[in-house]
Design a protein around this nucleic acid. Structure first.
Lengths: 298, 298, 298, 298
DNA sequence: CATGAATGAGCTTTCATTCAT
DNA sequence: GATGAATGAAAGCTCATTCAT
């Protein structure tokens, strides 16, 4: 099969799957269904995508590519000033978000994907950074340098706004006029920027913190309670000794603490230290520690 | 097993499941996993919750109850003016939303629940309506009657904002100071309200469209006994007939039953059915019915 | 896999399942067992039959098709007179019934199928009606119009006879000669027809009742309390659900009220209305309602 | 607890369970349900019956006792002649069969009980023999010695008739008048006896064969196809040799043959003989052989 | 290249039975 | 004696993935 034809097919699958994911959700859509709609065999899908997760990743990439292509056209249009470019691009985003609603949810929330898939996670992460830069560039371009500290706040507020409006309008089955919607959103942006600039208030999100984020390696992250359960299992295999007893106790205490609404960091770190003294658990303890560091701020 | 212990266990499962649902998603969490973390057998879960969906519903109810309990305390505090009440309740909401992040996601988006389950769907729907009423009441109380058309817009914008901020702050592992966060959010509200009122722009969500879906304007939820009193008043205006006599009797019986500690559902629903036969009361009966449905689970 | 092979496999599963159902009963045969005997995986079965019930239905259809095919051949044979056709078809039926004993049990008694499955129930129903028509046609053809009122009786008697003989002969491990068996059965039919025609006795099953299936059934008027007791009995047979609980409560309340000197009509009619919502009780509730209407003036 | 009270309770459970079994079927009734209706705990049931099967057996015994008690009264009544006794007892049987319909099904068909339970099987067997004797005694008493060879036939025919009538009348919801029903049934008996005596035809069931039946030991009988599967599994564990290959082939052939509608005995017994030559399978082969002997007549 | 039959682990749920209280 | 919480095996069913054809 020549490459063109293969690409054609791949795209068809992509669009179909996207459609299905958008309407039924990722986990609720089966490969069989996708195959059926594509009028091909289940096995056939695996010629183009090596797994369901890969398919999802490709969908994300396809969408972002689609958006980027359109953005670039606007970007390079010499007849538009910066505000117009911003408006046009926002319009493109909204139009796309409306058309591919679930795609928007995915990227805005990562709710659908279990965090186990590193590739997807990283990709979305990267795109989020790009989005941040995009906002910064335009907000500064439009409202001036003084808006810089508030860029992240604005981005978050606007995105949240959009997400929620779309949710509500979708549920209520109300039609959305993209242009009108864009204008509305941008007006809100005006109000907010005007407000924050006037009051010189402290931004909620500190940009420096944000940017410091590093990808780092991504290990299949386990839920701490499950991890503790495993550690308990492992430790009960050991011959009964005082240190074993103590370790079990430490685990129990940590479990209780984590169940609480406000786990006390001191308790947690104390127990971690206790457990680090147990040779046999050292590795799992380290994993637990790292998991906890991102779950509760430690 | 005494009731206390049973409740204890039920709560433990609830908290565990909530925790897992929140982090892995509803569909991605298996009953086995919940059972494992609770250190009990799969079958055991079913002694406390009759299905996975039931478990989810109970989690939702548990949370809303928790919130409602706190709201009421603020509501009834005579030392607070309306703006302070609004602020305090917003603070409570945010605190809760931060602590139980995924719970907030669930209710704000219904992403997790497949729409097949009527009970859950309806419950969330109902809670959303209550939330709408809450916003309307307070926004009008604070900003005056002229803000009325924009209430829905404001609610949506604020909720979206909050949702997204929490998402980002969570991902970035940044600490959130609830009070500061509340102030921030309320300031944004100020900017927006100020803006829309100044420009007299058209709201994005037309309240009449929305509300038409619910049939009936949003009224503050009335207490059933008061409602019954009103119905009695109305019916005594009518010419004396047998059906009137019977309706009065039905109302009396229902009143008595509701006064009881454990009103019997059968009596209540029977009387409701009787009253539905009375043309003149049909609307009020419906309201009564809906109020009762959330007061005692029917 | 080509269609032939697929059909082959399907048939193999069919035969295997039939065999197992026949010997262990439908509910006592698990899909795993069927899969094991077929030397395939559990999941594999579901490629051929979409559920266990579907498998059962297919078995029934397969058998009836097999029978119908043979019947038609006889039916269309120009060299046979009516008595010969009857004999031949009876022979076919018996042969089949002997070979697939439990199939025969299923269709004759519906013991195996829980009534929840509409499709299966209806299919058997329809086949029973066809059987009835078959008997009527042949009995009248052979014995004349005067046998018409006794057709149903004869069918029932003969079928019962056959069923029981097969049961006994199977249990006793005795060989059955189909031809001899047929002759024997037909001879019994002769004796019975001869008998009933001679005595002009009243048939046990009134064909008009059967076919119309409408109750011109005269029932003795029952005392409401007894009726309530019966309803309680019936309802406790149902799987426990909320609606069942509520119905029981309604019945309890009504009972108490009726015991009172001056039963309040509102209570009574309310409870009646509650019960009318319970499908399974609708008939008895109507009866109760009509009884009460004349007992206390309502 | 004194014995009286214990017996009382036992009887209550018995009656309740009977009722449930009768209406929902044995396997479809859970111990919890029985406990609930008896208003006792699940565990409590096990104080009175050591298992669900035991409970079933007790039910059967209770019913037969109930019937026997009534029979004896008639038997000993000096004012009744033999025909009257027969009629009276038949009436008792029918009345009981109507009242406890599913009990009748159980005993007439053994459909409900999986054959694995030896005690129940044997008990029913014994009761069937008693029934046989009862019929013989009365038929000879009424119609004379010449009816003796036809007793079994008559019993089977009558029982089949009754079973099927009850089924149909139940399904059609028609009321049954016991006396009328008895008369009807006995009239049919007259026709048949008259017929067979006149024609001196050969009875279908040879009494001598029947009676020769001995209980014998009862080993948990396995389905032949499952047994073959097991043998295949076991034999594939052995080192590959010619004799192993051959044994596998023999098993395969036998499997195919058994799937056929008319398995050829010669093939079956040939394969059995082949397999008896395989040391490792000798025991299972014997079991298979014995199972087959009762499944297909060999 | 393409198929779709087959797998097998996993899902939610049920239930007879046990046993600490 | 009596309870009912707990178990654990087994049920019917789904589905991502593989692989012989």
């Amino acid at each position: 099969m020549n490459n063109d034809k293969k690409n054609e097919k791949q795209k068809q699958i992509l669009l179909t799957a996207m459609n299905l994911f958008a309407n039924k959700g990722y986990h609720q859509t089966s490969m069989k269904e996708i195959a059926d709609v594509c009028e091909m065999s289940k096995g056939g899908l695996y010629l183009y995508f090596k797994s369901k997760e890969d398919l999802l990743l490709m969908i994300l990439k396809y969408h972002f590519q689609m958006l980027d292509d359109q953005y670039v056209l606007v970007e390079q249009d010499p007849h538009l000033n910066i505000k117009e470019k911003f408006t046009k691009q926002m319009e493109i985003s909204l139009k796309h978000a409306i058309e591919y609603e679930e795609f928007n949810n995915m990227r805005m929330q990562e709710t659908i994907v279990d965090l186990e898939n590193e590739a997807i996670h990283q990709y979305i992460q990267q795109k989020n950074i790009e989005m941040m830069q995009w906002w910064e560039k335009y907000l500064i371009g439009i409202y001036g340098e003084e808006v810089k500290p508030y860029c992240l706040d604005c981005m978050v507020i606007l995105n949240g706004m959009i997400l929620m409006f779309m949710k509500v309008l979708k549920i209520e089955n109300l039609p959305i006029d993209t242009v009108e919607f864009t204008e509305y959103i941008l007006r809100q942006l005006d109000y907010i920027v005007e407000g924050v600039l006037k009051d010189k208030e402290k931004p909620l999100i500190d940009g420096s913190l944000w940017s410091s984020k590093q990808g780092g390696l991504y290990k299949e992250k386990q839920h701490p309670l499950i991890l503790i359960k495993k550690m308990k299992d492992q430790i009960t295999q050991l011959p009964k000794e005082d240190r074993v007893e103590e370790a079990l106790q430490s685990l129990g205490i940590m479990e209780q603490e984590l169940m609480d609404m406000n786990p006390r960091k001191a308790i947690i770190s104390g127990m971690i230290r206790n457990l680090l003294g147990i040779q046999e658990l050292v590795e799992m303890t380290r994993e637990l520690s790292s998991v906890l560091k991102s779950d509760i701020e430690m």
